[in-house]
Design a protein around this nucleic acid. Sequence first.
RNA 1: GGCGCCGUGGCCGAGAGGUUAGGCAGAGGCCUGCAAAGCCUCGUACACCAGUUCGAAUCUGGUCGGCGCCUCCA
Length: 431
Amino acid sequence: MRLFDTYSRGLVELPPLPGPIRMYFCGPTVYQRIHIGNARPFVLSMWMKRWLEQSGYDVRLAENITDINDKIYRAAPGASAELAAAASRWYVEDTDLLGLGRPDHEPKATETIPEIVELIGKLVDGGLAYPAGGDVYFRVAAFPEYGRLSGREGDHKALHNPSEEAEREELKQDPRDFALWKAHKEGEDTVWESPWGPGRPGWHIECSAMAEKFLGPVFEIHGGGNDLVFPHHENELAQSRGAGSEFARIWMHNGMLELTGEKMSKSLGNIVPLRDAVEEWGRETILLFFLTAHWRKPIHLSDAVLAQARAQAETFRNYFVGLEHEPEEPERDELARVLDDDFNTPDALALFHDWRTRGRTASLLWGLALFGLGSLAEAASAPADLVALAEKRSKARASRDFDEADRLRGAIEEQGWEVRDVADGFELVPK
RNA sequence: GGCGCCGUGGCCGAGAGGUUAGGCAGAGGCCUGCAAAGCCUCGUACACCAGUUCGAAUCUGGUCGGCGCCUCCA
């Protein structure tokens, strides 16, 4: 399998079976319910995990939850820990709605403080970081590779990491330097001890620490939204390599989900909560919506596009209505051909339709289930009173009383079900 | 302004130097008591302008347009 890697800007081959494939994906900062755009890397990572495992790889996926952040302090003054804990639960709840399973590890920053402090200490000892005014900063000048990942190597202006406050900026030796540890400030209601004084970790260092803690000093894939390339991932890479770890070998950055021509983001306020979208459209529609676009491209959210995804869900669902099939081997190679080529899910979807029209039930069932869409094959059973109505309608039809038959069909439809006449009787399907 | 991604038929969206992608919507037909579902048929698209080539939507240059990052952000 090969994947497009941001660092080398080309396709990179995965190691041979059985791996291991160790993956780290950046999860959300938790201070409110996640939106559907936040779900994209989650969905991508779980699909990748499922496909790689299906392919025979030994996979380990870690996906962090950032529960220390300015946004959290600001959103819940005096109760940031409570908000972060609640929002972490919401995140798990909401992503569980997708039915894709969980990553192997979902570490939180607050549970990784000793490792973070240790990593910062290592960087300070190695001359790659320096304490200043209770903060600790990464010394970018000591890491020549800085800017390589984001393609802005040498451009000092583009590599500037501004401090939150002007007076903090003066503590830095170089505008590019960024905080690894931030001294405790008035109004922040969580604080941890460190050799440099009380405070809390910077954003980037937590990922470096968590990745190493759960995956080791080198791992195969690092993923996240492409809005994280700079500064977040650039800084992670600098910290971890600066501390002597090889770190990630392939960088997978997914495209943004856009609403009305703009990236959906919590700070812009143009958000559709994942939970609401799943409730309104159903989980299969949301998954199919993600499946229609290649992971690297931007994807536009609109009712029209969701309606198309829902129509596809119906098409698959209809295929399975009343279907019996012989167990047979899925045509794995056909799916591998498209997924092993940069995980081309739109091509996979085309293949599923091909399998559908050619009646390859076993393959279709297997392929859909891989992406969490196996439920499309599950027939809902109608309540007994509706079955009785449908039977009554069959009798009416048999005696050619079509007015009565149509009346009964209307009654069934009023209850949200549709009756279809088939060769040996009828089928009841939800509308 | 700098760095990067992208512009495909009504809509979504792969692909890729010469051969039907696929889906959704739409039209006609078959089937049906009528429907639904299903099946068959129908679209000759690749932003624009130059260039390379026997041949480009696919390569090169430019133009226009969209998006992301450069501030927290999946």
